[in-house]
Design a protein around this nucleic acid. Structure first.
Lengths: 358, 358
DNA sequence: CCGGTTTGCTAAACCGGTTTTGTAAACCGG
DNA sequence: CCGGTTTACAAAACCGGTTTAGCAAACCGG
């Protein structure tokens, strides 16, 4: 005997079965104190026996809240998840969200359009990561009245946000290389999601680039535009980047990489090119992801508190979502250079050239 | 002049402003061909000028679909995201989801309860990862009529699912160590999410354990229960695991680790203990995450197609969500041992001892 | 024992859309 | 020019809950 299309029980079913009104059933679940204790428990029993669960979407609609926060990125999730940085960031986001009982919804371009994705997203607020402040999508979100906090964006002062000292960290990295005697520097950056997009000077990568330049300029090193290459922020991207630079004739002794994931790829590319790290070439990463200290050689990099960044962003967001509305708050976290084993004194130039020739 | 509480425009506002019915507005967005072209475009113009966007939750409610798929895990997201394995898996999930225009919602225990989290989740279907088939939560989902596909679970044959050959991979790993002369083996497993839970013999870790045991038993090696230790699936967990084992007097020459993240921690612990890898101790991981080939030394491990697993799971799920309903399909993906540099011949002394014994 | 408050529940409105059903007007073949 | 079909839109029902307004009975102080 088959059950006949076992439709999901609705609140009306429970009400009928228990001989009460829909209101009473709703009360039984949401504010039992407004019902006589016996009534409440009887309703719950009936509900249980019917296998009734309030329909989450209906609940969202009438309550006007979803208990969900969104993480919005301009890049496809399938690419951004390949960077352990994002995993760690999500870890922080998830930690704070879970503590407050919020679920997590990831929002990435839908059929190429971020707005469309945003239009379909059912969230009480969003953490925006990797998008600069002026972005139209960001305006759209604000216009829709959805609270947001910007991460890694030199946000307008009227929006809450959390940033790190990208420029300072980058400068420290550059100075470190310079002080080791490096003069031929290659910079590897992260490719912006939309190919047409220029490297946004106000974005993370723009700020890091400025930091590098400042650090180098202090010792009188000027940067040729050709010695800045960009690729996607992944191990693979880093691998490709160094190979490309090398292929186009560049022979740096020091490489500043804007992402640890890429730096790991650079380490590998170096090995494939027959270069020893750090004897022949030094590499400095950025982010200090978990594995950076475990790669070969352990990576010198700029540390940033990734998890804390995610956590703080969510706390900030929830403080405005829940109308605990302090004025828009800006949080700034620090970076610091961590010297491990992927950097060393610059090789004497002659030596390097000879070895590669031979 | 302040705008007066700029309420979000509703469909009724657009209808009034354009002098048409709600129906017409809805048609203008969803089936413009049912309207005269001029009418449709006029409505859209009005809608634009008002900044109208269909309310996603309302739309979900009446359409009875959310265009969202859930990823359900019994562990807190804040812990599971720390394992690069999950990042890669999510990458695959996201890839397939994005292609089909589905958003991603992560479901993890809400205030300790998975059911509660599931009750609040607004998804068209879920990918269940790391939960075995018999689990009550899984039954609850099925009862609620939500399509699901189980990943890494020896599912009942009436549920779609994707699994890998955990046992075969594990056996290969064990045989590899044995063939190198190792006789004193330590096994490091992943701690189940609920502390009370026993190591589920039907779960991933149970299957891998069986594989290890089979591989060892073939060469007459019996496993003492004390040489199986479990910790959380993270770098930190692996680190702790080896230290604990060592502290309790175990002196293995070969370590079989059920997760690469943990294996990386083991490599570090070995270094801290003054052990050289692979000269003093050999380590075999499991999963073959991206960084495994970049750590020091490059990790010998059991490869599984992580991304493809996520991707396949979503495709399977969507095929039932969209009523393209083939009968519940089971997908089985292969594993293979990848020998890198973290394994080598068992150290001489022990080998000799064993030879004499044998 | 009377007027006011509290208790316990219901009826109706509402959240913001989509979908079904209905209906005038236009079209159309014979 | 008449009956039947399309076309183009509107009215109403519906999705499945919550929330507001309201009402009868019980309680309660004076």
């Amino acid at each position: 005997m088959e059950e006949r299309t076992p439709r999901r029980p609705r609140i009306a079913d429970v009400a009928r079965e228990a001989g009460v009104s829909k209101t009473a059933v709703s009360f039984a679940f949401n504010s039992p104190d407004r019902l006589a204790p016996e009534t409440a428990s009887r309703i719950r029993e009936v509900a249980d026996s019917l296998g009734y669960r309030p329909h989450p979407v209906a609940r969202m609609l009438s309550q006007r809240q979803t208990h969900t926060i969104g993480v919005l990125t301009p890049q496809a999730l399938s690419v951004i998840f390949s960077n352990p940085f994002f995993g760690a960031f999500s870890e922080g986001v998830a930690l704070a969200a879970e503590q407050e009982g919020y679920a997590l919804h990831f929002i990435s371009p839908l059929h190429g359009s971020l707005s469309r994705a945003m239009d379909h997203a059912t969230v009480d607020g969003v953490v925006v990561v990797g998008l600069s402040a002026g972005h139209p999508e960001v305006e759209q979100i604000r216009a829709a009245g959805v609270p947001l906090v910007m991460v890694d964006s030199s946000a307008l002062p009227d929006q809450p946000g959390v940033v790190i000292d990208d420029e300072g960290g980058a400068r420290a990295a550059a100075e470190h290389l310079v002080s080791l005697g490096h003069r031929d520097i290659l910079i590897i950056g992260v490719e912006p999601p939309a190919p047409a997009l220029e490297l946004d000077p106000e974005g993370v990568m723009g700020r890091r680039l400025r930091g590098y330049q400042t650090g180098l300029a202090a010792k009188g090193i000027k940067l040729d535009p050709s010695s800045v290459v960009v690729e996607p922020a992944s191990i693979e991207g880093g691998l490709v980047a160094l190979h490309r630079a090398w292929g186009s004739g560049l022979r740096p002794t020091g490489v500043l990489v804007m992402s640890d994931a890429m730096a790991i790829g650079v380490l590998r590319a170096a090995r494939e090119l027959g270069l020893r790290v750090p004897e022949d070439v030094s590499v400095v990463g950025y982010d200090d992801i978990d594995v950076s200290q475990h790669v070969n050689p352990p990576l010198t990099t700029v540390h940033q508190p990734i998890r804390r960044k995610g956590e703080s962003a969510v706390r900030l967001l929830l403080s405005v979502v829940q109308r605990r509305d302090h004025d828009p708050q800006q949080l700034r976290l620090e970076t610091r250079l961590i010297v491990r084993a992927s950097t060393g004194p610059a090789p004497r130039r002659r030596q390097e050239v000879d070895r590669v020739r031979g």
